[in-house]
Design a protein around this nucleic acid. Structure first.
Lengths: 116, 116
DNA sequence: CCGGATCCTATTTGATACTG
DNA sequence: CAGTATCAAATAGGATCCGG
């Protein structure tokens, strides 16, 4: 049994999944590989996500220390940018492997029926 | 929007997560890298998982074609073995990366407080 | 030994409206 | 622009018992 950021995990794989699991976290992280993004930029890229859900997932990613939030108070149109932390960048190989496997599965096994 | 095995995914990363996501799937898959395992062998290795949950996750992994189930009817003590399919074996690099990152996070960032 | 069936709880996600 | 609040729905996961 392992502990990370106050949560318990039965296995080192589930620890990682606790950080990147959930419906949207890998999607957010994958977009952030390309650099900083604002809240609304993320939202538009992600299409069907709701404000609340995006907000929650961003908070959790911050709590686990893989993304950071920068606020620019310059002028009334508030500006907030999200980006990977150095720690978060160590996830990039995994994220890319996950994206590649998704593509691979689509190309090679999408049409198969469950007939085995 | 992508489709795989009858389910919809907004991104190729979420497709992969749909297959390996959930609290126990990576744990199951990770143990199966080492070879075939019986239901009870898995259960013992996994400690806190309940019968129902293990059963469900195994079914879902089968439906997605990444593991296979072999039944040996030889004698009343039923014997069922689970193992990775060829398709499932393409997940091994991801699973090992996930396990390694979990270890890495434990060693390097476990003690940190959320004080950023 | 291997799970299916049933019931229940907890967590996650979504819809919608509203605010500094 | 970048969220938060509130409510409801969906999903995941657990406890327990039972049967082939």
């Amino acid at each position: 049994m392992h502990q990370f950021k106050g949560k318990q995990y039965p296995c080192c794989t589930s620890l990682t999944m606790g950080v990147i699991g959930g419906k949207w976290k890998t999607v957010i992280l994958f977009y952030l590989i390309g650099g900083k993004l604002r809240y609304n930029e993320l939202r538009k890229k992600m299409g069907t996500v709701t404000e609340r859900t995006l907000s929650l997932q961003l908070q959790q990613l911050q709590e686990d220390g893989v993304i950071q939030r920068e606020v620019f108070y310059s002028k009334p149109p508030l500006k907030v940018e999200y980006s990977l932390t150095e720690f978060g960048k160590t996830l990039i190989p995994i994220l890319e492997a996950i994206a590649q496997w998704g593509d691979y599965a689509l190309e090679n096994h999408s049409a198969e029926e469950n007939t085995q």
